[in-house]
């Protein structure tokens, strides 16, 4: 059994074109957000202020895409009055872009922290923790973009599961920072600063979970928000 949804064509082909355009724009926004995340993380880890500036400047483009897609969705709701899967498609994507926009903001936060962290000299362990968390959320984002393309529920569930590893890593990193701050009070300022970046990466994981929950709703109409992983798997197995 495949867990994918590929819609048939509408009688109004123009409607198909409009929906397809929205999907393309969302994927475009997702790709841009991924670039922001990747560059934001690189800027932070390498202390590359030039790249950080680029990321900060580029956030406007993410915001502009959000507004543009919002308008396109509003127009479809007003003109086409979508029902069933079409309705869930528009609702899911309109919510997806809100989370994309917030991921963009978190990526910008990484870039903003670049100078501050650079001055404090990031330690090897800190570097490793941030790199590891960063790689995990970039992978989650990559897979989320694939789910938007394929609408594969199994893959959406996999992405949601991956967030646990991000949370675990975040907690471990925080514990590491706290104990180091206790031992070496001089590191409190830099530790706090770095913890904010780790927090940004952890939040990105949460936003990606949200997006994959919307995509599950899109495919099978089940609202799977605000439930734990065990219940989620049970609900998806009900069918």
């Amino acid at each position: 059994m495949e867990n994918e949804y590929q819609p048939t064509q509408h009688i109004s082909q123009q409607f198909d074109v409009e929906l397809e355009n929205i999907k393309s724009q969302v994927l475009k926004m997702g790709a841009l957000v991924k670039k922001q995340l990747r560059d934001g993380l690189t800027a932070l880890l390498d202390g590359d202020e030039k790249l950080a500036k680029k990321v900060i400047k580029r956030d406007n483009k993410v915001n502009a895409l959000e507004v543009k897609i919002d308008e396109a969705c509003t127009s479809i709701i007003a003109i086409r009055q979508p029902a069933a899967t079409d309705l869930r498609f528009v609702l899911s994507l309109i919510k997806t872009i809100t989370d994309f926009e917030r991921i963009g903001d978190e990526a910008e936060k990484l870039a903003v922290s670049t100078r501050n962290v650079k001055e404090k000299h990031i330690s090897e362990q800190e570097y490793q923790y941030l790199r590891s968390m960063g790689d995990m959320v970039i992978e989650m984002l990559t897979q989320t973009l694939e789910v938007i393309e394929t609408l594969n529920v199994d893959q959406a569930l996999e992405v949601i599961k991956q967030d646990q590893a991000v949370n675990d890593e975040y907690e471990e990193f925080l514990n590491f920072l706290v104990s180091r701050m206790k031992d070496k009070p001089k590191t409190i300022k830099s530790g706090l600063s770095i913890s904010w970046s780790a927090r940004a990466l952890e939040r990105i994981g949460d936003h990606l979970v949200n997006i994959n929950e919307y995509l599950i709703y899109l495919v099978n109409g089940k609202d799977v928000r605000h439930i734990d992983l065990e219940d989620l798997e049970e609900i998806l197995n009900e069918e």
Partner: peptide
Amino acid sequence: IFTNPRHELTENYISGRFG
């Protein structure tokens, strides 16, 4: 029925996919 119909034919009709 209008948000999550169970049958494919219902889905197709209410979302304007039926000729």
